[in-house]
Nucleic acid binder design. Structure first.
Length: 562
RNA sequence: GGGCUCGUGGCUUAGCCAGGAUAUAGCGUCGGGCUUCUAACCCGAAUGUCGGGGGUUCAACUCCCCCCGAGCCCGCCA
């Protein structure tokens, strides 16, 4: 509903500006505590017309003509600001829209392929990787909510050097079948790297494996695929625990086997940018200000990650309208190179979301060195802590209930802590911080939802008929603020989708829960007189829906009781 | 050495791209609130040279330049 209000303000302002004889310029609109929407456009016009901005604001206000059925209730000039306020109609329309499940989606028929996580299958996901997964998954949910047709893909690296090392390692060391398979893979991978670091001969065994693979050697393909499967099974399980969903897993090798990699190398050669450098093929991008040329092919003829990634992106470009990749900060240069190459061969380029690194207090994480905190470890720990919390608060409940709730708030807490931080901030993983349930995180939001559910459950069935609920009775300050906050959701979804910034939804969720808690404190529902009680019940139902939608979009469970 | 990103109360953090009304919130600290729909809640207080310096502007956390600090990257790894 807020979007509609904003559009109306924009539209009447534009007309008023013209009618007052001012030049049209982009109208700055801001939300502030002084108004539902304010503009400082008079300040901008002031130097152009050499006129007092306060006078300009007055002149513009005079010319504003409200249409029928408008959401704008009143307009005030304060200093040089023009302030717009919503009225009762806005509140009524908002509740009606929520009642009829009418979410303003704004996009249709746009196919988006979003790729995220795509971690090498050489070990389990660690706490750095899940930043990628959580950003990607949340964004996918936001885009869907905004009306896009979204397909989420995991690009499986099943033929890089690291996988060659894993497949080699499986034959050198004992694989611990008792362990979760991705963790067991990491064990042998770490050992193999220790050995390889000291032995040149063994390194050449890896090279031989890579060459045989590129030539589609059956036995080698089998070996690699077995190694990849073991790791991927474990990775999928972890993703599943965190409610992270991929629609498709695309194997890197498929682009080599199908000939797509050879094809794209030819495409790129046609641009005249490809040179031979000591037998390797490199692409020159210096005219774009990138001094580092991109290596397409090793001197032994095998392809590289970037080459196969180019083939993958060509395929994606042909199958969607918008590509989004979520990548770690180490991919900044390579993703820029990839985009430029795609551009030179006339293909669509992806929007790349770069997230900065998560490191440990001891330094950066490395699967190869065995320096990491796995996502499984974190989930196990947080669920243990969550269980303790539930057990303290609801000792009377069943074991099953406690476990289920612990699980719901545990993974949500992880997701919230990760998503609330802007992607371009690097962070340091801290156990104490990660397991802290006192802060206003996911459980705070989930608790507001549970409170709403509890009220609704206690109200008798027949009372939940809201045909006759009178919205006009909801005139307490906090009731209005709650409705306004609910009206704002579509705007948050839209902005988060457009700017690819999922963290703003996390912040909104906390504000929405906060607004509900304010209402909860001041407006008793079940004890209120009949008509007021019905109105407030309806408000609770709407709030519950909004909280649930918000939690769903953040990939967090919405417990009815906790 | 070069490139990209970040630097906001003790700690974590929003706002910066599209400059404007007293700089956002959480944790922690201090004080208060459960006979009332779940206190995983609520209310109040203290705490800021928005890394430093210059510049642009009527107006700078926001834009430009320089410096300092941190992270990431800099061809045949991914």
């Amino acid at each position: 509903m807020f979007i509609r209000f904003k559009n109306e303000v924009e539209s009447v302002l534009k007309t008023a500006l013209k009618d007052a004889g001012f030049k049209l310029l982009p109208i700055p609109l801001e939300e502030s505590e002084h108004a539902d929407l304010a503009t400082s456009v008079a300040f901008r016009l002031s130097p152009i017309y050499k006129k007092n901005p306060v006078m300009i604001a007055g002149e513009i206000k005079e010319k504003i003509q409200l249409k029928e059925n408008t959401l704008i209730d009143r307009i005030e000039v304060a200093g040089a600001y023009i302030n717009f306020f919503v009225g009762e109609k806005y509140l009524v329309d908002t509740l009606n829209a929520i009642q009829s499940d009418d979410f303003e989606s704004m996009v249709t028929n746009t196919k988006v392929i979003i790729e995220h996580t795509s971690v090498n299958p050489n070990g389990p996901l660690h706490v750095g990787h899940i930043r990628n997964s959580i950003i990607g998954d949340t964004l996918a949910r936001i885009l869907r909510m905004a009306g896009y047709d979204v397909e989420v893909q995991y690009y499986v690296n099943d033929m890089g050097r690291q996988i060659a090392v894993v497949s080699w390692a499986l034959e050198q060391f004992v694989f611990d079948g008792q362990k979760k398979s991705d963790h067991a893979i990491a064990d042998v991978y770490i050992k193999a790297n220790q050995v390889l670091e000291e032995s040149v001969n063994k390194k050449s065994e890896i090279n031989t494996l890579m060459q045989r693979l590129e030539k589609a050697d059956r036995a080698v393909i089998q070996r690699f695929s077995k190694a990849v499967q073991l790791a991927m099974d474990g990775i999928r399980e972890t993703l599943n625990r965190m409610n992270i969903i991929h629609d498709r897993f695309i194997e890197e090798s498929s682009f080599v086997l199908s000939g797509a990699v050879k094809e794209i190398v030819e495409d790129i050669k046609k641009t005249g940018r490809v040179k031979s450098d000591n037998g390797a093929l490199v692409v020159d991008l210096s005219d774009f200000g990138i001094d580092k040329s991109l290596v397409l092919q090793r001197s032994d003829g095998t392809s590289l990650y970037s080459t196969r990634d180019l083939a993958y992106h060509k395929w994606k470009a042909q199958h969607c309208d918008w590509m989004i990749d979520v990548l770690g900060a180490d991919h900044k240069l390579i993703s820029t190179q990839l985009k430029l190459v795609l551009r030179t061969i006339g293909l669509k380029q992806p929007d790349v979301i770069i997230f900065e690194f998560v490191s440990l207090p001891e330094g950066s994480m490395s699967t190869r060195k065995g320096m990491f905190v796995s996502a499984d470890e974190l989930i196990d720990e947080i669920e243990k802590h969550a269980y303790k919390e539930v057990n303290e608060r609801r000792p009377e409940k069943s074991e099953e209930f406690k476990k289920e709730v612990a699980q719901m708030i545990g993974t949500a807490a992880i997701r919230y802590d990760v998503i609330k931080i802007s992607a371009d901030k690097s962070t340091v993983f801290d156990w104490r911080e990660a397991l802290d349930f006192e802060k206003q995180g996911a459980p705070f939001i989930q608790y507001a939802h549970a409170r709403a559910c509890s009220i609704l459950k206690k109200a008798a069935e027949e009372e939940c008929d809201f045909e006759n609920a009178d919205v006009h009775l909801l005139n307490h300050k906090n009731e209005k603020l709650l409705i306004k906050k609910m009206a704002y959701l579509s705007n948050v979804i839209y902005t988060a989708a457009k700017e690819l910034k999922p963290h703003i939804l996390a912040i909104y969720a906390r504000e929405l829960a906060d607004a509900f808690n304010q209402f909860y404190r001041d407006s008793p529902v079940l004890q209120a007189d009949e008509n007021l009680r019905r109105s407030r019940l309806m408000l609770v139902r709407c709030a519950r829906r909004r909280l649930k939608t918000t939690l769903d979009t953040l990939g967090m469970a919405a417990p009815e009781e906790m």
